[in-house]
Design a protein around this nucleic acid. Structure first.
Length: 952
RNA sequence: GCCGAAGUGGCGGAAUUGGUAGACGCGCUGGACUCAAAAUCCAGUGGUAGCAAUAUCGUGUGGGUUCGAUUCCCACCUUCGGUACCA
């Protein structure tokens, strides 16, 4: 066999490294183009077949851009801080830095096997002190700035202090939590703690109370991800919400800019709309309701002030600070039980709960507009984090309020007549007010204005813009993340450590378990914590999104020790032209990066206002996840797993789903996947906490190696639940690309992933069609060299047929790359091979451009063929072929002939035939006459170049 | 629940602006080569009826707009991603 891909790949991989083929530097003579992949978290499971989908696409695109004369920046790095490495360390004692280093090594080898054209000299790792030094540096800047609403940008806290000294905060408009006004006098009278508290309300990085998932049994804070259905994924212990003082980033200050600046970037509408909805801007009315028999006033926010006469009750979030005071003694027991039930549920559980639940406090509020007393209830569907944590309920015009009112038999007053708008839903602000006192008869928008004016004139509220977006919790009680450059004095006042002491490095440790009171593992290291006289260090670390919010800037100048990137590099590379990554980052990472970028822009540290000009979401390659059903309740402290066929579909909420390593499972991925005895034993060994668990089967029970029931141990069939989902270490369902590359070669693997379908579409992994690509590559190769390694390419002048085949292909492939339609580009190249093979043509002028055309897709064999054609330099720096119209001009055009829109035949016409000429010919066709019969022709439609339709 | 996406032959998918539904590939069937197999090559391949010409049905479901709908509109179903501490 002439084609030895393993040898070819090895050879050219070395050649590219030696010749620095993909290294790129600032070159002002050339236009820059920045192609970026979302960098991976280096998981212990290694790169899986889903990762390369985006990497291959960006690789093709960046190669294509380079061949079109651009100076292409295409770097790669690792998002190497994170929870899994820490969990691994707790289990094995291996330091996260060590396991991370090993994982990165493995990832780089896997990536290089795919022939990706990264400039590795620019690599970044978020867990490297030389990188996180600058993450800490940016945090320090966030700490020292506040958001000035008048200037519409971040401004230094020093300027704010000067202003406080002069005028207090009377003239300051800033993005803050609720702050009292104070004069310069007041300010000067405050002690340090008070001043510090005030400033915290202004800083873009500030401290406030947040809630964490606390698991008493494990003695640790858990990520949302580690909590399944209210119990810990490891061990199945109960989890509760616990308040803790935490760092937050004031992303809400940037809400309006994050929203508005999306207009100017080339992102898909669906992605923009996700971000828009996440920000969730609404205009409405903030107002106070009096409370009967109390001095307190209840603050609410509504987008529908017009419905004020339809308010029949109020609902508080279970966490609302007034709950205790408003609950009468008679209702106390019930309320406490309800809060217990609601508070520890996750937000998703609470808002997606179909069962309606709530409890009456016993207290009443007073509608300030009509003086009516209305009951105050508590329900889980009101969230403390959105608006004010309290709502006025209007059951006539809000679906959730209506369901609640119907369930608890609360009154409903109809206040909007929608009969003029039959298509309108309850959400539309349409209709005419009824039963509404002085606004009766008004259209809804008019009524909204009227009530806002009324409320403002009464001095009990004001018009307000509200956002769903919440400030970002920035503290994690973890070891493996960036330490904060923060120390506290004995009064708990936070101070920044000076920039020249950065990076604040993670101290070496051997124990990564959190402390018993839920503090970060760093708190165990007393020497490190109390390093400064009279001060102690912050022991929380930063979350995963810290390092990933600015890494694309570091690539521009990754070795710089004086700045996060030089002005020159930032000026040249500007921003990311083309960013590709998964939709799972559509709101999280992409929102945080935009926020950090805008902040840096405000400080004049980056030249652009938005980081990513064009963004494409690649779909996910999914795997099959295998789950075991675990009963949430234990028997005598023993966990009970139940075989799938015994689980009643109606009681699914009684079970948690525990993922199992797919290699333990028989008939993996099918309806009937199951664990046999060996599989269960492997699982028990793998997950120690389930070593003594009971496995309930159809024909008996298996526990601790013993089987009781009908038949023998060897008959054990514990069926598992198979679901299509993410390929991830968490689900233990990863498929490694190395195996595929070893069998078929990297070029085949690359083209196969691209050939699977459109880049933005998700699909389950499956190697069914890979033989087709493998055959195609061999056939393509066979145009140049036969099976006996005889060189076939000849210097003969190509004829018009050959030129037409070539230029048709160039046209299609080029267009498709620009549309990122790689699957159809590949299909066009397949068509080329089929057609050129049929005429047995092997001419240089045809086959040379084809090597260049395929080079971005199959870089290895392209490079090999290019050199076999006698070329000296890399094909990847050649110019991409350009298609010429003159070679593909058709003299004849085929038209489908339709009768009433149904195709009845195909006819060929001269390309320059007029509509009348076509009509005349068509009318005389036998089959047309037959279909028309004696019916009159009502219409003849000719779409030039497309089709003919006769309507009878 | 809310936000976003997808649904087309046995399978992955194509149809870029409302204009020939099923390109290309897998699989399958038949054939050539071979002692045989693999590999390769050739032909066929949406369903139904028919020897055939051809007819008819057909793009998740139900409606609608149009000469013409996979494409636009309305309602619904299913699956996937996100849902603020996985990354």
């Amino acid at each position: 066999m002439a084609l030895d891909f393993a040898k070819i790949e090895k050879h050219w991989k070395d050649y590219w490294v030696e010749n620095k083929t993909y290294k790129v530097d600032i070159d002002k003579k050339k236009e820059k183009y920045y192609v970026l992949d979302m960098f991976p978290y280096p998981s212990g499971a290694g790169l899986h077949v889903g990762h390369p989908l985006g990497y291959i696409a960006s690789d093709i695109f960046s190669r294509y851009k380079r061949m079109n004369g651009f100076n292409v920046l295409h770097p790669m790095g690792f998002d190497s801080f994170g929870l899994p490495a820490e969990q691994y360390a707790i289990q094995t004692g291996i330091h996260p830095a060590d396991s991370t280093r090993e994982n990165i090594k493995m990832y780089k080898k896997q990536l290089s096997n795919l022939g990706l054209n990264y400039d590795w000299s620019r690599e970044v790792q978020t867990s490297d002190p030389s990188y996180y030094r600058w993450t800490q540096w940016i945090f320090s800047r966030l700490f020292e700035h506040y958001y000035d609403i008048d200037k519409n940008k971040a401004v230094s806290i020093d300027e704010l202090l000067e202003e406080f000294e002069k005028n207090g905060n009377l003239n300051v408009t800033a993005a803050t939590a609720e702050t009292k006004s104070f004069s310069a006098e007041d300010w000067k009278k405050m002690n340090d703690t008070e001043k510090n508290d005030v400033l915290m309300n202004y800083r873009l990085a500030y401290r406030k109370v947040g809630y964490v998932n606390w698991c008493e049994a494990l003695g640790t804070v858990l990520a949302n991800d580690e909590v399944k259905d209210g119990i810990s994924e490891r061990g199945g212990h109960p989890v509760v919400k616990k308040p803790m003082n935490q760092w937050s980033l004031r992303i809400t200050a940037y809400a309006e800019r994050l929203l508005k600046d999306m207009e100017n970037i080339d992102w898909s509408d669906s992605l923009k709309s996700m971000q828009r909805n996440w920000i969730g801007r609404s205009e409405g009315l903030q107002m106070f309701f009096d409370i009967a028999q109390s001095d307190k006033k209840l603050e609410i926010y509504t987008t529908r002030p017009d419905t004020i006469f339809g308010v029949t009750f109020m609902v508080l979030s279970p966490e609302h600070p007034y709950v205790e005071e408003l609950t009468l003694d008679a209702n106390k027991k019930e309320v406490e039980e309800y809060i217990e039930y609601a508070v520890n549920k996750t937000e998703i559980e609470r808002t997606s709960e179909k069962k309606i639940s709530g409890v009456f406090t016993g207290s009443y509020a007073v509608n300030p507009i009509n003086g009516k007393q209305i009951p105050i209830w508590i329900s889980e569907y009101v969230l403390m984090d959105y608006g004010t944590g309290a709502i006025m309920a209007v059951p006539s015009d809000d679906e959730r309020d209506r369901a609640f009112a119907e369930y608890f038999n609360l009154p409903v007053i109809n206040i909007i007549d929608k009969s003029n708008y039959p298509e309108a839903t309850s959400k539309d602000k349409l209709g005419i007010m009824i039963n509404s006192d002085f606004i009766t008869g008004m259209e809804v928008p008019e009524a909204i204005e009227a009530i806002i004016n009324k409320v403002e004139s009464m001095g009990i509220g004001k018009k307000q813009v509200n956002y769903k977006l919440r400030d970002a919790n920035f503290s994690r009680q973890r070891y493996w993340g960036e330490p904060f450059p923060i120390i506290y004095d004995d009064q708990g006042i936070a101070y920044l450590l000076p920039d020249d002491e950065l990076p604040i490095e993670l101290p070496p440790m051997t124990e990564f378990k959190p402390t018993v009171d839920g503090k970060s593992p760093l708190a165990r290291n007393k020497n490190w914590v109390n390093d400064f006289d009279g001060f102690y260090r912050e022991t929380d670390t930063m979350p995963g999104f810290a390092g990933s919010s600015w890494y694309f800037l570091r690539y521009m100048d990754s070795q710089n020790e004086d700045e996060f990137a030089s002005k020159e590099a930032l000026e040249y590379w500007q921003d990311v032209d083309f960013y590709i990554g998964g939709t799972e980052h559509a709101v999280g990472h992409l929102m945080y990066s935009r926020f950090w970028h805008k902040f840096l822009y405000d400080l004049n540290l980056v030249p652009t206002n938005e980081p990513f000009k064009r963004l494409v979401n690649q779909g996910m390659i999914q795997g099959v996840i295998e789950f075991l059903y675990l009963r949430k309740d234990k028997e005598n402290d023993v966990n009970i797993f139940v075989s799938k066929e015994l689980v009643n579909a109606n009681n699914l909420e009684e079970y948690a789903k525990i993922p199992v390593y797919i290699k333990f499972v028989k008939d993996y991925g099918s309806e009937n996947s199951y664990l046999d005895k060996v599989g269960i034993d492997k699982f028990r060994e793998w997950r120690e906490e389930y070593n003594n668990a009971k496995f309930v089967l159809q024909n008996g029970v298996y526990q601790s190696g013993k089987f009781e029931g009908e038949g023998s141990k060897d008959d054990i069939k514990f069926t598992t639940l198979s679901e299509v989902g993410k390929m991830s270490k968490r689900y233990h369902n990863v498929v490694n690309p190395d195996d595929v590359v070893a069998e078929y070669g990297a070029d085949v693997f690359r083209m196969y992933e691209m050939f699977l379908g459109p880049i933005e579409q998700s699909k389950p992994w499956d190697t069914k069609g890979i033989d087709g690509i493998s055959k195609f590559i061999k056939r393509f190769w066979g145009l140049y060299e036969d099976r006996d390694s005889k060189w076939l390419v000849k210097d003969e002048k190509p004829n018009s047929v050959e030129l037409k085949i070539l230029h048709k292909t160039i046209k299609k492939v080029t267009e498709d790359i620009n549309h990122l339609s790689f699957n159809t580009a590949i299909s066009a190249m397949m068509v080329f091979v089929n057609e050129i093979k049929k005429i047995d043509s092997h001419k240089t002028d045809i086959l040379e451009p084809m090597v260049k055309l395929i080079a971005p897709f199959a870089p290895f064999i392209a490079e090999e063929l290019w050199h076999k054609l006698g070329k000296i330099n890399s094909v990847h720096h050649e110019e991409y072929p350009v298609f010429e119209e003159k070679y593909i001009k058709e003299s004849k055009v085929k038209y489908p002939i339709c009768i009433n829109g149904k195709k009845r035949g195909i006819e060929e016409f001269d390309a320059d035939a007029t509509q009348d000429e076509i009509k005349e010919i068509v009318r005389e066709l036998d089959y047309v006459k037959k279909w028309i019969g004696d019916k009159p022709i009502r219409k003849e439609i000719i779409v030039p170049g497309r089709m003919v339709n006769i309507v009878i």
